[in-house]
Amino acid sequence: MSSTASPIVAVRGIGKSFGAHRVLSDVALSVQPSQVVVIIGPSGSGKSTLLRCCNALEVPQEGSITICGTDLVKNGQLIPDRELNALRMQVGMVFQSFNLFPHLTVLENVTVGPRQLRKMSKSHADALAHELLAKVGLSQKAAAYPATLSGGQKQRVAIARALAMQPRVMLFDEPTSALDPELVGEVLQVMKALAREGMTMIVVTHEMGFAREVADVVMVMDAGQIIEAGPPEQVFSAPQNPRTRSFLQAVISRD
């Protein structure tokens, strides 16, 4: 992949196996500031694993990953814990199953990171959290506990929680897959707004409409490899790889 300005995320030649099962092989990826990369591909192709490697929730056995020019994984070696924690603050993650902290209020979910990790004062963190909750349309839910929220609301809180660390890049792993269809839109709205503001994003999703509209680059994964990458119009209208074509056909016929 061409290296223009210094990339926010640079993945070079990573490989990962779970036991004998090879899940990623020789994957490379470079994300420029404000770029939105959407990763699509069949189930089990390694999309989540690739994304989780980008904040070392999984560690590849081969290859290197840098975040904003700082090594995260070098030749299959994870950096020491101290540096890892500091680097993870730069990378926001949004999970399919939200993973909100159920014992904390919505406000506390958003402030816990800045307060504990950035040593922000309570008033400062609260102000930041209220601002972010307003942005995701949940100002009135600040005092609620996660259990009382709908799936769409939970995912918007999770986005606000990640944003509160003021990350340089946001990773989304199928953020709308666990949602009832009528709640998908509100989460995609928030993500689109983020993209418009220039947030750097890597998004694993099955929402082809979102990919078409927001992605700068669409990557197609299959069997642990990126088999195709390009602007959405090219990947969707004139896919080069026959496996991309059959995947897209399967997705379209399912919808």
Partner: peptide, 10 residues
């Protein structure tokens, strides 16, 4: 995972 992804230590 969510806690670690924010940057918390174990």
């Amino acid at each position: 995972e969510a806690a670690r992804s924010l940057g918390m230590s174990y």
